[in-house]
Amino acid sequence: MSSTGIKAPIFHYDSSDLNFNINSSEIKKSKLDLLLKQRWKEAEKCGFLRYRLNITNQRFLGQYKFLLQLNVNRAINRRIPQNILSMDQPFDSDQFNFTKIPDREILFDLGNGDGNDIIAVNISPIEWGHSLILIDRLKGFPQKATKSSLEKSVLLLLLSGSPYLRIIFNSLCAYASVNHLHWHLYYLQHEMLLEYATITKLIGPLYILVDYPSKGFCLKYSSFKNIENFVSWTHLIINFLQEQKIAHNVYITRAKESSGQTEYNDIRLYIWARKSALGIKNTESFIPAVSELFGHILVRSEDIYDNLTEEEVIQTLDNVTSDIFYSIKAELEKLIQKEMTIKNCEDSS
């Protein structure tokens, strides 16, 4: 194990630092943004990354406004992903894990300085500021989203003053590359369709995304206006998927009412149940992981970038999500109804 992150600065914050409404026409960098960007730039300048981020080409594609980005370096220079064979694959301390990263990759500490809760630079970035949220790092948890890691991820989004900070999670068998609990964050400075696309209420606080190639579920912060409830309801669904051994991806983003609107007044948290992807992922192909399900298509070869069509993207996203979505929709509806009944009884007692 490497030494802990005691040397990294500790990020202190309180409720006054949270940003619930942001205007993209007058972005003000928060304490989190300033520290993250400063430390990330230093890591890049000092050569701690496997390559300098270089998005050589990007373009929007079709009616769903898929954002294609070409990043050849990520295919060539990234660490070889682990061989993931099961949703129940245990943490293996002998494999690469985030207790083994050098202190220089730790950008700052989110806890008391003991290196347990940290933000670390992703040395193979997909976008600017790409970092890892490592909660309870020293406990050796496998890649299963805990409630505390989810809560910390939501707080980090709210601590940013940027509408473009995104937070993502790939489960095991859903293109997670390392079987050690981690979330990703990065800045994607483009308006994306799923910030404002139509979602339909299923039951209670649960919405569904159906008029889009990747079929999934969505919760909005505005349904709760309370971080604890937002996190609890979200984790209820994620935990259901984990218990049922259903691969899944999670994407957290700022949201607004419509395209072109400058005020971001909500948060959307998308959850996609999807077909399992087993084995070592091919880092050179178009991989339908969490960013791709959101519409951010990461491409690692010029040939794919030049020739990938909207129809191919649509078919791929639909293929990995539709069958699972429709097979569990009724079960999730029952789960939410049961939870609502319990909460109503508690409130009335």
Rank of each mutant, 00 (worst) to 15 (best):
S3P: 05
P9T: 05
H12G: 05
Y13H: 15
D14F: 07
D17C: 14
S25Q: 13
K29S: 13
K29Q: 13
A43P: 13
Y51C: 03
R52S: 02
L53Q: 11
T56C: 08
N57P: 03
L61D: 03
L70T: 15
R78Q: 14
P90M: 08
D94I: 00
I101C: 10
G111W: 09
N112I: 12
G115A: 07
I118S: 04
N122A: 12
I123Q: 05
I123M: 09
I126W: 00
W128S: 06
W128V: 13
S131A: 15
S148I: 11
L150E: 03
L150S: 01
V154M: 01
L155P: 02
L156I: 13
P163M: 09
Y164T: 02
L165C: 05
N170V: 01
C173Q: 10
C173K: 13
Y175C: 01
S177N: 02
V178K: 02
V178M: 04
Y186A: 04
Q189P: 10
Q189D: 05
E191T: 12
L193R: 07
L193Y: 02
I203H: 03
P205F: 05
Y207M: 11
V210I: 14
K215E: 09
L219I: 15
K220E: 15
S222D: 11
S223D: 15
F224E: 04
V231Q: 06
S232I: 03
F240E: 08
Q244K: 15
K245Q: 13
A247Y: 00
N249P: 06
N249V: 05
Y251L: 01
I252P: 00
E257T: 06
G260D: 03
T262L: 02
K275W: 04
G279W: 02
T283M: 11
I287M: 06
P288N: 01
A289Q: 06
A289F: 00
V290L: 02
V290E: 02
E292T: 07
E292I: 10
L298D: 00
V299A: 11
V299N: 14
E302Y: 09
I304N: 11
T309G: 02
E312P: 06
I314Q: 11
Q315A: 14
Q315Y: 15
Q315T: 15
T316G: 09
D323L: 08
I328K: 04
A330Q: 15
L335G: 08
Q337Y: 10
E346L: 15
S348D: 11
S348C: 09
